Amino acid sequence: MQAFVKTLTGKTITLEVEPSDTIENVKAKIQDKEGIPPDQQRLIFAGKQLEDGRTLSDYNIQKESTLHLVLR
């Protein structure tokens, strides 16, 4: 499924993900596309910070959801 990641600069990245993907996995995909190390990434969805060990389905993130990427 497709999900979108919006950065603070307003850029939107499109990712191909599965509901079973972990947040860690998603961060690795963002690193592949953008070169941002996962340890600098914080992903926010519905106002919550997403934890590495959880999956997209844990957070009820469905296709075409938009996550927000904040860098630390």
Rank of each mutant, 00 (worst) to 15 (best):
E16S: 12
A46S: 08
V17G: 01
Q62S: 11
I36S: 04
D52N: 11
P38E: 07
I36M: 05
P19M: 10
I44S: 10
K29M: 13
L69P: 00
Q49L: 15
S57D: 09
L67N: 01
Y59G: 01
K27I: 03
V70W: 10
T12I: 15
E34R: 05
K11M: 10
L71H: 07
S20I: 06
I61V: 08
I61D: 03
T12R: 07
D21W: 09
L71I: 13
A28M: 14
Q49P: 11
K48G: 06
D32L: 13
T66S: 06
I30S: 00
D39M: 09
D21L: 05
S57W: 08
E64I: 05
F45D: 01
T9K: 10
K33H: 10
Q31P: 01
K63A: 15
K33S: 11
L67R: 01
P38D: 04
K11P: 04
P19W: 08
K33G: 04
E18Y: 15
T14N: 06
F4Q: 06
Q2N: 10
K48T: 13
P38R: 13
V5G: 01
T12Q: 07
Q31K: 10
T22V: 04
H68C: 12
L43F: 03
R42P: 01
G10S: 04
T12V: 14
S20M: 11
I36F: 12
L8P: 15
F4D: 03
T9I: 07
T66I: 14
V70S: 08
T22N: 04
I36A: 03
T66G: 04
I30R: 00
T9V: 08
A3K: 01
Q41W: 05
F45R: 03
S65R: 06
V70P: 01
V70G: 05
L69R: 00
E51V: 09
F45M: 07
L71S: 08
V70N: 06
D58M: 05
S57G: 11
E18V: 13
K11C: 09
E34Y: 07
G53Y: 11
E24F: 15
I61M: 06
M1V: 06
E16M: 13
T22I: 04
S57N: 10
T55E: 03
K6A: 07
L69N: 00
Q41M: 14
Y59Q: 03
A46R: 14
S65L: 08
V17E: 00
Y59E: 03
I61N: 02
K6I: 14
Q62V: 14
R54C: 10
D21F: 07
K63S: 15
Q49C: 13
I30K: 00
S20V: 05
R72Q: 13
G35E: 03
L69F: 04
T55W: 03
K27H: 02
H68D: 08
K27S: 01
